[in-house]
């Protein structure tokens, strides 16, 4: 029984990381109806920058996370400006192809020797790992750090979206670009802000992922990116709470299927969920509106 609970805690930790990535997918989709396939690679860049921050650059861990978030926020804004904005009024498939191009570019550019290099790197931990057990269930301080950081960021996001002028403008733009323009909202800058926020969250997820799972390389973002995309679709793409719900489910599916079915089947099971959702309920668990084609 304790074993199952421990697996569920592991699933929760992974689900929290997925949530940070899934939020960016869903927010960007909500605002410009684009699946930003480069989002997983932003997560990867965040992981590298954060790890470099607390190792090579000698920054305290929280500062390293902040730097990674900042760098990725800027990266997200630049990507939108260069790769998506020129295609804003083109057929939607054009921006989607552009996103795949950006994704490949980031992966192979980061694989260059003068960037991050093509190899796996083992990540040193920024702090001592300690385990403790509560009622026979063992957990680690990493789990606590991940949980605290993710809850804090979700709280900050909630505050941004519902209490600030910028956040309300983001919600308004996601509903109706032209009506938002008629309010005097600069839609382009709201879209930039959305990319910045989504990319910063993914970067935080990247650093936490690196610390928790201890291996990074330039193709790190592909699988968690796809899982988080699945999570966003499962919860209802474009719906912020749906992304978190979907991510928590995907975390459990990943960990429990690896533990109790087979780790070889883990990804197959995860993506069967994607197919199933698209077939049975394309609007996702929390979605009620008409399904949108990607």
């Amino acid at each position: 029984m304790a074993g199952v609970l421990e697996q569920i805690l592991n699933g929760l930790q992974l689900g929290f990381v997925y949530a940070l990535i899934a939020l960016g997918y869903t927010m960007v989709y909500g605002i410009i109806r684009l699946i930003n396939f480069a989002h997983g690679d932003i997560f990867m860049v965040g992981a590298f920058v954060g790890v470099l921050g607390y190792t090579v650059w000698g920054l305290p861990f929280p500062v390293a996370v902040g730097v990674a978030m900042l760098v990725c926020a800027v990266l997200g804004v630049i990507i939108e400006r260069l790769a998506y904005r020129p295609l804003r009024y083109a057929p939607r498939i054009a921006a989607l192809i552009s996103a795949i191009g950006v994704s490949l570019f980031l992966e192979y550019f980061c694989s260059l020797n003068f960037v991050f290099g093509p190899n796996y790197r083992v990540v040193p931990r920024p702090f001592e790992v300690t385990s403790f057990s509560v009622a026979g269930v063992t957990a680690s301080n990493i789990m606590v750090v991940v949980t605290v950081v993710v809850i804090a960021l979700l709280g900050a996001l909630q505050y941004l979206l519902f209490r600030t002028r910028t956040g309300k403008a983001m919600r308004a733009v996601s509903q109706d670009h032209d009506a938002a323009r008629l309010m005097g909202i600069n839609v382009d800058s709201v879209i930039s802000t959305t990319f910045a926020v989504g990319s910063a969250l993914a970067a935080a997820g990247g650093v936490l992922y690196a610390v928790a799972y201890r291996q990074i390389w330039p193709f790190l973002g592909i699988m968690p990116g796809l899982k988080a995309f699945t999570a966003a679709v499962l919860g209802g793409i474009g719906i912020v709470p749906g992304a978190v719900l979907g991510a928590l489910i995907m975390g459990q599916v990943d960990v429990l299927s690896a533990a109790y079915v087979s780790s070889q089947f883990r990804d197959a099971i995860g993506f069967s969920i994607l197919i199933l959702v698209l077939l049975v309920r394309p609007t996702g668990l929390l979605g009620s509106r008409q399904p949108e084609k990607v």
């Binding site: 002028r165 309300k168 403008a169 919600r171 308004a172 509903q175 109706d176 938002a180 309010m183 005097g184």
Partner: peptide
């Protein structure tokens, strides 16, 4: 009309005062 259906009435009016 094009009101922001998911925003509250007050939030809609706040958006009107965005500038």
């Amino acid at each position: 009309r094009r009101v922001f259906v998911n925003l509250t009435v007050l939030e809609n009016l706040e958006m009107g005062a965005y500038t």
